[in-house]
Amino acid sequence: HDTTVHINGLRIEVHGASEEILKWIEEAARRGVEAEEIKRWVEEALK
């Protein structure tokens, strides 16, 4: 999927993410993980 995830006011563009990654992002956000940190993880995961 190409999608934009909104976390604590930060937009994260996610290209080619699976449902699993999207669920993981939402879970991390709920746990209060910094949005910048999530963004870094997602970029690494999608390389």
Score class of each variant (00 low, 15 high):
1 H>E: 12
1 H>F: 13
1 H>C: 08
1 H>W: 11
2 D>T: 15
2 D>G: 15
3 T>W: 05
3 T>V: 14
3 T>M: 13
3 T>H: 14
3 T>S: 10
4 T>L: 06
4 T>Q: 11
5 V>F: 01
5 V>T: 04
5 V>D: 05
5 V>C: 12
5 V>R: 05
6 H>D: 14
6 H>Y: 02
6 H>Q: 11
6 H>F: 02
6 H>P: 06
6 H>N: 15
6 H>L: 09
7 I>R: 00
7 I>H: 03
8 N>K: 05
8 N>A: 08
8 N>F: 00
8 N>Y: 00
8 N>G: 15
8 N>H: 04
8 N>C: 04
8 N>S: 05
9 G>A: 03
9 G>S: 02
9 G>P: 01
9 G>H: 06
9 G>W: 00
9 G>K: 01
9 G>T: 01
9 G>L: 01
10 L>M: 12
10 L>V: 15
10 L>Q: 13
10 L>R: 06
10 L>A: 10
10 L>T: 15
11 R>C: 15
11 R>M: 15
11 R>A: 15
11 R>G: 15
11 R>Q: 15
11 R>Y: 15
12 I>C: 05
12 I>Q: 02
12 I>M: 02
12 I>T: 02
13 E>D: 14
14 V>N: 01
14 V>Y: 04
15 H>N: 12
15 H>T: 14
15 H>V: 13
16 G>H: 07
16 G>M: 07
16 G>K: 04
17 A>Q: 04
17 A>K: 03
18 S>I: 07
18 S>L: 06
18 S>A: 10
19 E>H: 12
19 E>L: 14
19 E>G: 09
19 E>V: 13
19 E>R: 08
19 E>I: 13
19 E>C: 07
20 E>F: 07
20 E>W: 07
20 E>V: 10
20 E>L: 10
20 E>Q: 10
20 E>A: 12
20 E>N: 08
21 I>P: 00
21 I>V: 11
21 I>H: 03
21 I>M: 12
21 I>Q: 05
21 I>N: 02
22 L>A: 02
22 L>Q: 03
22 L>E: 02
23 K>A: 13
23 K>L: 12
23 K>H: 14
23 K>Y: 07
23 K>D: 09
23 K>C: 06
23 K>T: 08
24 W>M: 09
24 W>F: 10
24 W>R: 05
25 I>K: 00
25 I>D: 00
25 I>N: 00
25 I>S: 00
25 I>R: 00
25 I>H: 00
25 I>W: 01
25 I>E: 00
25 I>Y: 02
26 E>N: 03
26 E>G: 03
26 E>Q: 09
26 E>W: 08
26 E>K: 07
27 E>L: 06
27 E>I: 06
27 E>F: 01
28 A>L: 13
28 A>T: 02
28 A>I: 05
28 A>K: 02
28 A>P: 00
28 A>F: 07
28 A>N: 03
28 A>E: 04
29 A>G: 06
29 A>H: 11
29 A>V: 15
29 A>R: 09
29 A>K: 10
30 R>H: 11
30 R>C: 07
30 R>L: 14
30 R>V: 13
30 R>D: 09
31 R>M: 13
31 R>E: 09
31 R>F: 07
31 R>G: 09
31 R>S: 12
31 R>D: 11
32 G>N: 05
32 G>W: 03
32 G>S: 04
32 G>P: 01
32 G>F: 07
32 G>Y: 05
32 G>C: 04
32 G>T: 01
33 V>H: 04
33 V>Y: 08
33 V>K: 04
33 V>A: 08
33 V>C: 09
34 E>F: 09
34 E>H: 12
34 E>M: 11
34 E>K: 13
35 A>W: 14
35 A>Q: 04
35 A>H: 08
35 A>C: 06
36 E>W: 05
36 E>G: 10
36 E>T: 12
36 E>P: 07
36 E>R: 09
36 E>V: 10
37 E>D: 12
37 E>H: 08
37 E>F: 11
37 E>R: 07
37 E>V: 12
37 E>M: 11
38 I>Y: 00
38 I>Q: 01
39 K>M: 10
39 K>S: 06
39 K>C: 08
39 K>D: 02
39 K>H: 07
39 K>V: 14
39 K>F: 10
40 R>S: 08
40 R>H: 10
40 R>F: 08
40 R>Y: 08
41 W>Q: 08
41 W>G: 03
41 W>S: 05
41 W>P: 00
41 W>C: 10
41 W>A: 09
41 W>N: 02
41 W>M: 11
42 V>M: 03
42 V>W: 04
42 V>R: 00
42 V>N: 00
42 V>C: 02
42 V>S: 01
42 V>Y: 05
43 E>Q: 06
43 E>I: 05
44 E>D: 10
44 E>C: 10
44 E>T: 10
45 A>Q: 13
45 A>K: 08
46 L>A: 05
46 L>G: 03
47 K>W: 02
47 K>S: 13
47 K>F: 03
47 K>N: 13
47 K>E: 10
